[in-house]
C-alpha cells in the first residue's frame, strides 16, 4: 500500500495534467485584456498555493519533530522543504513571465512576490543547513522551518503595509467562472503530482533511516549470535 500510493498519485497527476492543459488552452476562452499569456495563471496560482501548503506542512512537521523526535515527522519536514523549493521555483519562474507580459514589469515588489521570494530563501537555507550542518543541526533546521512557516503571514502583511505607503495598483481582475472552472483540474493534477512526490520522498528518507538502523543491526549481530 505504502509503495503503491505515490504511484497512484503520480498516475492521477499524469492523467489530469494533460487533460488540464488541453482544457486550459482549447476549451477556455482567452482573457480579453491579457491575452494568451494569461494561460500561465492556471499553473502559476495552483503552484503558489501548493508551495504555501507545503511550507505549512513542513513547519508543522518540524514542530512535531522538535517535540517528539519522531523520525516520520522529520522525514516529512525534509520532503516538504525540498518540494517547497521545487514548487517555489515554478512560482518564481512563471510569475515574472506573466508579470512581464501583462504589467510590463517582471518584478513589481508586490506583497505576494516578496513573500514567495523570501519564503523560498528561508527554505533554501533550511535545505542548506540540513545538508551542511553538523550532527545535531537537525533541531536547528527544524526551528528554521517553524520560523519560516510562521513568517509567511507576517511577511505578507509587512510587505502589504510597506506598499500601502506607496501604492502600486497591480490587482488581478476578477475572473469569469469558466476560467475558475479550468483552474481546478490544473490544481488537482499538480496537487496529485506533488503529494505523490512528497510521499515518495518521505518513503525514501525513512528508508534511508531504516537502512542506517539495519546497518547498525548487522554490526550488532555477531555480538548477539
Amino acid at each position: 500500500m505504502g509503495r503503491l500510493f505515490p504511484v497512484i498519485l503520480l498516475g492521477v497527476g499524469a492523467l489530469t495534467l494533460p487533460y488540464s492543459v488541453q482544457r486550459v488552452f482549447l476549451d477556455t476562452p482567452i482573457e480579453r485584456t491579457m491575452g494568451t499569456v494569461q494561460k500561465i495563471f492556471y499553473f502559476h496560482v495552483p503552484l503558489a498555493w501548493i508551495m504555501m501548503l507545503l511550507a505549512v506542512v513542513c513547519g508543522v512537521a518540524a514542530g512535531i519533530q522538535i517535540r517528539t523526535r519522531s523520525e516520520r515527522a522529520e522525514a516529512t519536514a525534509i520532503a516538504a522543504a525540498e518540494l517547497v523549493l521545487v514548487a517555489g521555483l515554478g512560482v518564481l519562474l512563471t510569475g515574472p513571465i506573466w508579470g512581464h507580459a501583462t504589467w510590463g514589469k517582471a518584478w513589481t515588489w508586490d506583497a505576494r512576490q516578496v513573500t514567495t521570494g523570501l519564503l523560498w530563501l528561508v527554505f533554501a537555507s533550511y535545505v542548506l543547513v540540513r545538508h551542511f550542518g553538523a550532527a545535531g543541526s537537525e533541531r536547528l533546521a527544524a526551528a528554521l522551518a517553524i520560523f519560516g512557516a510562521v513568517n509567511v503571514p507576517i511577511i505578507y502583511y509587512a510587505v502589504k503595509i510597506w506598499k500601502t505607503t506607496h501604492p502600486d495598483n497591480n490587482v488581478v481582475g476578477s475572473l469569469p467562472p469558466q476560467m475558475w472552472a479550468s483552474l481546478w483540474p490544473a490544481l488537482g493534477g499538480l496537487l496529485a503530482m506533488t503529494l505523490g512526490l512528497l510521499w515518495a520522498r518521505i518513503r525514501l528518507e525513512r528508508a534511508e533511516i531504516a537502512l542506517d538502523e539495519a546497518w547498525v543491526g548487522v554490526e550488532d549481530a555477531p555480538q548477539e549470535a
Binding site: 550532527a135 537502512l211 542506517d212 538502523e213 546497518w215 547498525v216 554490526e219 550488532d220 555480538q223
Partner: peptide
C-alpha cells in the same frame, strides 16, 4: 547512541 549510520554506543 547513533549518529546516522554510525553507532557510537551499543547497549551499554
Amino acid at each position: 547512541k547513533r549518529f546516522g549510520r554510525l553507532a557510537v554506543l551499543r547497549n551499554v
